[in-house]
Design a protein around this nucleic acid. Structure first.
Lengths: 133, 133
DNA sequence: GTCCGTGCAAAAGTTTTGCATTTAC
DNA sequence: GTAAATGCAAAACTTTTGCACGGAC
């Protein structure tokens, strides 16, 4: 588990405070700066990696493909899917039995085992959709 | 649609010849080099962008999250989902009515409009799953 | 005191941009 | 002839790495 350093704790707190957001390394830096603290970017990346290994946070693939994003792992997020809104960035946790059917069907009929952890549904939430019109 | 340049045609041909592969910009460069042709990387990126807008190719996100990859668009890909295998990189085109149910349900019950074009299911195909065990 | 973690700067890799030149029409 | 596309080099961005220093235990 490694040492218990101040920097590591600051980064963990950052994710705990933003449980519903997906943060890139630079987002963590900004959050820390807003709280008048600073951790080097290299250290942030090194901690993101070890926190992911410890299971405290989870890495996603951002739609832009240009940066990694991580999110606090509430422990049951492996059991459902995430819906991410293009416009506001909000992440909806989809806890619904319909996904079981989907996975079973795709597993049996299409020969593919979906990884819930890594799959994100992209789209637009009702709130943002109504704003647009 | 822009001008009809030799460079653009070379790039299109590259994707037509590799219909089932996902190519990064540097892969395109290599392919062209193997055919004794050369197009500048900047031009490749500019063409990838315009070809994507024209709908000739489709952009994916590499599993590593570190580079963009594009694939020849067979023309109906906007209508279904893509399942991408972590191990071999293969993309399965999911043409199945189950997705209609899924979208309707998530739209009505969870207030979220999924964008099929941008959503990729990550996981493992049966072939790779069997290799692992 | 010994390791591990950190910070800084440099490097690496992908993608974008500025600008002069060439090409398509 | 005009507007757009290209090539090159430089810049931008994210992420990784090397190395000396400082902190955890």
């Amino acid at each position: 588990m490694g040492y218990n350093t101040e920097q590591k704790n600051l980064i963990i707190k950052c994710f705990e405070t933003n449980k519903d957001s997906q943060l890139g390394a630079s987002d963590v830096l900004s959050f820390l700066a807003a709280n008048n603290t600073k951790v080097g970017l290299a250290t942030i990346y090194r901690n993101l990696e070890s926190l992911e290994k410890e299971g405290k946070i989870k890495k996603f693939i951002d739609v832009s493909g240009r940066q990694g994003i991580w999110q606090y792992n509430s422990g049951h997020c492996g059991q459902h899917y995430h819906l991410k809104c293009f416009d506001c960035g909000k992440v909806i946790h989809l806890e619904c039995e319909i996904v079981e059917n989907l996975e079973n069907h795709i597993g049996k009929e299409h020969g593919f085992a979906i990884d819930r952890e890594k799959t994100i549904f992209y789209g637009r939430c009702d709130l943002c959709a109504s704003k647009k019109c």
